[in-house]
Design a protein around this nucleic acid. Structure first.
Length: 404
RNA sequence: GGAGGGGUGGCCGAGCGGUCAAUGGCAGCAGACUGUAAAUCUGCCGGGUUUCACCCUACGUUGGUUCAAAUCCAACCCCCUCCA
C-alpha cells in the first residue's frame, strides 16, 4: 500500500509496519494534522533492551513527522504481568522496585524524544496513576460488560497458554482489559488515537480500539511492527549473555557498539533502516557493499545506532576504540580495564577482566591459544601481565591491565 | 482421595549398582579459514590444585542398604496423566 501521510510512508519504507487496524483511515488522519500516539513499556527491569528499540524508534519517527508521542510507562500493568508469549506467570514486583525501574527507564527516552509542553512534544505518563484508583464494582459495570469472555479466550495470549495447559491466573487474564482501558484513558486525556507496539500486542491493541468505540463511540487505530529476527533465525537482541540493554549501567558503550558492529551481513540494510536515522539513499548505498566492504556499513550502523542511544561522543569514542583495537592491534580507552598494583598472572588478569569465570576456564583459554598479551599468544599460564599491557581472550574480547 | 509416570549439568535428553563429572543434541567458548560476517572443520565445555595426575562438590530433598549408588530401599517435596 502507498501512503500519502509522511508518517506512514516513513514507517513503511523503513520496515516498521506489520499490521494496521484501518490503514487508509489512519493514513488520512495522519495526513490531515498532528495525531497523538502511544506505546506502552513495562517496568520489569531497570533498563529497556534492544527488543524495545523498534517501538522507541517508531515514536521518534512519529515526532519527527510532526505528531505527538506518548510514552506510557506500565507502572500499573507491571503489577499484573502480561501473559503474552509466556508460559508462566511473571514474578510480581513490588511498588518500590517498579518505581525504581521506572525512574531508570525514563532517562532512555530523553535520548530519542523531545519532551515538553509543545504540541508535538513527547509526554510520559504512568498508568498506575489511573489503574490503581479504579474501583472494582464501578469498573466492572462500566467497562467489564464490554468484554466477552468468549472472545478473550480466543486471543493468542490466553489461548496458547490454555492449549499448552499452562496455568493462567485470573490476575493475568485481566491484563488485556487494563491495557484496553489504558488506551481509552489516553484517548480521553490526550486525544490519543493510535496505539503502536510489537506484533505480539495486536490482540491487546485491538481490544483498546474496540473499547473506545463501544464506550465513547470514537475511532482509534492500532499499528504493530513485525517481529524483528536475525538472518540466522534467532530473535533480535537475545544473546547467550542475556538481553542487550540500552542503559549504560547495564552494558558499556563499547559493548553496545560492538553488538551492532557484529551484525550479520544479511541484516545490515534492515537494521540501518530500523535503527538509524540515516537517509534511505545512503542506506541503499551502504547495503549494496559486498565482501569485506560491508564492514564499512557495519561500522556506520554501529556508530549511528550507538549515537542515538548513548550520544554522539560515546559512539565516536567506541568507534575509535574499535578502530585502534581491531584495525591497528593496539588498544583504545573504552576497553574494559582491570586495576592492579603490580604484575599479575595471565590467569588472574583474564578473570579480573571478566573474560573467564574461573581459573580453570582461564587456564583452558591459555591452553587453547586464545589468550594473548599485547597481541602475542601466551605460552604458559604462569605468564605475567604488567600494568599498561593489553590482554585479549579470543579475537573479540580485549581489555587493559592498568596500575591502580 | 485412588492408580500410574516422572524430577539428571544453561536447555533438551540418555544412563538405571562399580569402567560416571555422567552418551548425544542445542547453546556457549577457543583454534583453523575469513572480513571483528556467515557456513564449515577441530578442540574445550562443574570447581580447585603442584594438571599426562590428584582432590572437592554434583543427578528433587532427607535418611538407609552396600566395600561401592544418578542407579536399590524408605519417607518427604514438586510436576504430569488417568479415575473419583
Amino acid at each position: 500500500m502507498t501512503y500519502s501521510s509522511d508518517f506512514l510512508r516513513r514507517l513503511e519504507t523503513r520496515g516498521y509496519i506489520h499490521q494496521i487496524t484501518d490503514a487508509a483511515a489512519l493514513d488520512g488522519a495522519a495526513g490531515k494534522g498532528a495525531i497523538t500516539a502511544y506505546v506502552g513499556f513495562d517496568c520489569t527491569a531497570p533498563s529497556l533492551h534492544i527488543g524495545n528499540l523498534v517501538s522507541i524508534m517508531m515514536l521518534r519517527h512519529l515526532q519527527q513527522s510532526g505528531h505527538r508521542p506518548i510514552v506510557l510507562m506500565g507502572g500499573g500493568t507491571t503489577k499484573i504481568g502480561d501473559p503474552s508469549g509466556k508460559d508462566e506467570a511473571r514474578q510480581l514486583l513490588g511498588d518500590e522496585q517498579i518505581n525504581a525501574n521506572l525512574a531508570s527507564i525514563k532517562r532512555i527516552f530523553e535520548r530519542f524524544l523531545t519532551f515538553g509542553d509543545g504540541p508535538t512534544d513527547a509526554v510520559m505518563v504512568n498508568n498506575d496513576d489511573w489503574l490503581s484508583r479504579l474501583q472494582l464494582v464501578p469498573f466492572l459495570r462500566d467497562y467489564g460488560r464490554h468484554f466477552s469472555i468468549n472472545r478473550m479466550l480466543t486471543f493468542d495470549s490466553v489461548r496458547l497458554r490454555l492449549e499448552r495447559e499452562q496455568p493462567l491466573s485470573f490476575i493475568e487474564f485481566n491484563y488485556m482489559i487494563f491495557q484496553a482501558y489504558d488506551y481509552l484513558e489516553l484517548n480521553r486525556r490526550f486525544g490519543c488515537t493510535l496505539q503502536m507496539g510489537g506484533s505480539d500486542q495486536w490482540g491487546n491493541i485491538v481490544n483498546g480500539t474496540d473499547l473506545i468505540r463501544r464506550v465513547d463511540a470514537k475511532d482509534a487505530f492500532g499499528l504493530t511492527t513485525p517481529l524483528i529476527t536475525r538472518a540466522d533465525g534467532a530473535k533480535m537482541g537475545k544473546t547467550a549473555k542475556g538481553a542487550v540493554w540500552l542503559h549504560e549501567d547495564q552494558l558499556p558503550h563499547f559493548d553496545y557498539w560492538q553488538f551492532w558492529r557484529n551484525t550479520h551481513d544479511a541484516d545490515v540494510g534492515k537494521f540501518l533502516r530500523l535503527f538509524t536515522d540515516l537517509p534511505l539513499d545512503e542506506i541503499a548505498r551502504l547495503e549494496a557493499l559486498e565482501g569485506a566492504e560491508i564492514n564499512t556499513a557495519k561500522e556506520m550502523l554501529a556508530t549511528e545506532a550507538t549515537a542515538l542511544c548513548r550520544g554522539r561522543d560515546a559512539a565516536e569514542a567506541a568507534a575509535e576504540t574499535a578502530r585502534a583495537t581491531f584495525a591497528e592491534g593496539g588498544a583504545g580507552e573504552d576497553l574494559p580495564q582491570f586495576a592492579v598494583s603490580g604484575p599479575v598472572s595471565i590467569v588472574d588478569a583474564l578473570i579480573g577482566l571478566g573474560f573467564a569465570a574461573s581459573k580453570n576456564e582461564a587456564r583452558k583459554l591459555v591452553a587453547q591459544g586464545g589468550a594473548r598479551i599485547d597481541g602475542e599468544a601466551v605460552g604458559s599460564d604462569a605468564a605475567l601481565v604488567a600494568p599498561g599491557q593489553k590482554v585479549s581472550a579470543g579475537k573479540k574480547r580485549h581489555g587493559l591491565v592498568v596500575a591502580g
